[in-house]
Write a protein that binds this DNA or RNA. Structure first.
Lengths: 217, 217
DNA sequence: GGCGAACCGTACCGTACGGTACGTGGCGGC
DNA sequence: GCCGCCACGTACCGTACGGTACGGTTCGCC
């Protein structure tokens, strides 16, 4: 399939990017069912024939949408300045937590995750993998860099970075992500109003588990 | 709609239960797309006409499947014996954690959650609500009873039961649930082999946050 | 034994949608 | 200025599926 190469190197022409953007808009608005080849062609002012030429088939369009969105994720390189105080790190972690919750509760993120979940059941889809291994690994990279910098600075104590990250993630996200995917209104989860408060609480707990001033293990 | 009443009182005849069971099997095997009215009728050896008579339409069938599965959930009443030791509670919490992870990673749970996620995007579906407010609230009730019993016995310390529950849930589940929904293989999550170990670790952390022998707040 | 209700199986209809083919209109190369 | 390329738009096809109608069969009830 020639469209596969398009997906793998995740390089899209401007026109294709426009089409995928329109597809994302449709997806956010109406879910996967809203992505019909005719509908997408109309919304993007392109022809169905072009869709099939570029992406192979409908499935290819969906994959491309995920790959495209994933390609937009950029890891904000952590400022690696030395001699950072505990306060500095706390601020960084708060920023991270807020970013994480903001991203996860974003409408495109929700829509895309729902799409990937739906595809996961159907075929033996590398679709959820794509989503998880791009978006998530970006998040994880940022968090791990932060965690290890804080450890080097003597503010955190842990052996297994992965484990520490998972704990941080669990404390921050809890089951909010799943509940949002299930359609629960953000307001009933205290978002975005209480987001800061929730992040604070999660970090308080995280620091009590991994902070250097507490005995670990 | 007459099928609505069926859903609400969640009472199904034996025959209907058989049909819904067949539907669950189809759902587990092939996802929502695999539930076609003709296919379900064939799999359940019933007529399409009966399907429409009982459940109204395809959507009604899906709702009924969720309601039916939810109706099977029973909360194992916590043994409320007094004078239980910290060890006893620890055992209970371990059982709870293992049950939780076992349920969430079960194939029917995964399939049903995927279904609900898919529906959440389409209509203004009370479908995910159903799932969340049945299965989840059952889990939550059990956990909260356990938490408060442990608090009364002086083994845990917290003000807000809901907050404690969320923390426990977050530490136990982390992002495993979402990743399973996205199709990640259980083995890559260390399930079910490392499940006990993961529960232990989560509970260690939870006790360090809420255990009575540690200062809280 | 006769009757009606419930249900099965099947055949049928309408439609929506994935996928393909064709005609048309810009646009860069010669 | 002519030509080939690419993409747009549209019209078209086949099919799969939701939903309905109908004849036949079983079963309980009088």
């Amino acid at each position: 399939m020639n469209y596969q190469s398009k997906v793998e190197d995740s390089e899209f022409t401007d026109r294709q990017a426009q089409v995928l953007e329109a597809g994302l808009a449709l997806l956010v608005a109406g879910g996967e069912k809203a992505i019909t080849t005719a509908g997408l062609a109309r919304a993007a002012n392109c022809s169905k024939e072009s869709l099939y030429k570029w992406f192979g088939d409908r499935e290819g369009v969906l994959s491309a949408m995920i790959a495209y969105q994933a390609s937009k994720v950029r890891v904000p390189a952590a400022a690696a300045s030395a001699n950072r105080s505990a306060e500095d790190f706390r601020v960084d972690f708060e920023a991270f937590g807020n970013d994480l919750l903001t991203v996860l509760s974003g409408s495109t993120s929700i829509a895309l995750n729902r799409l990937a979940v739906g595809q996961a059941s159907a075929d033996g889809a590398p679709l959820g993998d794509l989503l998880v291994n791009r978006g998530r690994s970006a998040i994880r990279a940022r968090a791990k860099a932060l965690l290890e910098a804080a450890r080097r600075a003597g503010h955190l104590r842990f052996d297994d970075t992965e484990e520490a990250f998972e704990t941080l993630y669990g404390l921050l996200v809890r089951d909010k992500h799943v509940r949002m995917l299930l359609g629960e209104k953000l307001t009933s989860l205290g978002l975005p109003l209480d987001q800061n408060k929730q992040v604070e609480r999660a970090l308080d707990q995280f620091y009590r588990l991994y902070g250097a001033e507490f005995a670990t293990l």
